[in-house]
Amino acid sequence: MFAADGSDPAAKPLVLPLGESALLVRFGSTLSQAANTAALRFARILELRPIAGVVEVVPNLVSVLLRYEPQRIGFHHLAGEIGLLLTAAVDDVGAEARNHIVKVAFGGEAGPDLPDVAERLGLSAGAFVAAHNASRLRVLATGFAPGFVYCGFHPERLHVPRRAEVRPRVAAGSVLFAAGQTAIAATDIPTGWHVIGHTQLRNFDALRDPPTLLQAGDTIEFEATT
């Protein structure tokens, strides 16, 4: 474990081996806006200043995965390069954050948990949908399943925990809500999140290039379809 001195006082990034040909640069052990922002920023820096021997860079919720070829760069050498980049002054990481409008049919058969979620928050269904759509969210990460995106964060007053039970299968396009976030399922998945609606957006198509439309750092506005 190698602590690198980050310039961001909120984050003390750790460089952690993940098997013999990957490592994680982790900016926090709990999910926070600061840790996510730091991870996305560092992934962008690695795109701008690629390290020889690194073959894949993937931002996650609070970390960046680097897959590397040990024959080309050793772990300690790579950790050193990462330490330099973590402290380097990079003024403009110039991430091209795009905004997406995602239309959602809230409630009904495809959003069975909406009444329950609204009730927990002491809101009518309509007031919950309005509150849900009020703030522009950011795509925090793609993960868990093909094209599955985590979007956050909602204000504290809209936070609910996950369901106690996991649904073995919800349909592609399901809009999910838990832990201050809204997630969008791009494929059929099992989930313990509340299913609050459904979108026609399919964020994964293996035959499309690129196969996903939303990427970490993009902003999302949800709109209710009538």
Binding site: E56, L65, R67, G143, F204, A206, P211
Partner: peptide, 9 residues
């Protein structure tokens, strides 16, 4: 299919 983790694959 390496290099596709950012798309969840």
């Amino acid at each position: 299919r390496s290099g596709m983790l950012r798309h969840g694959i």
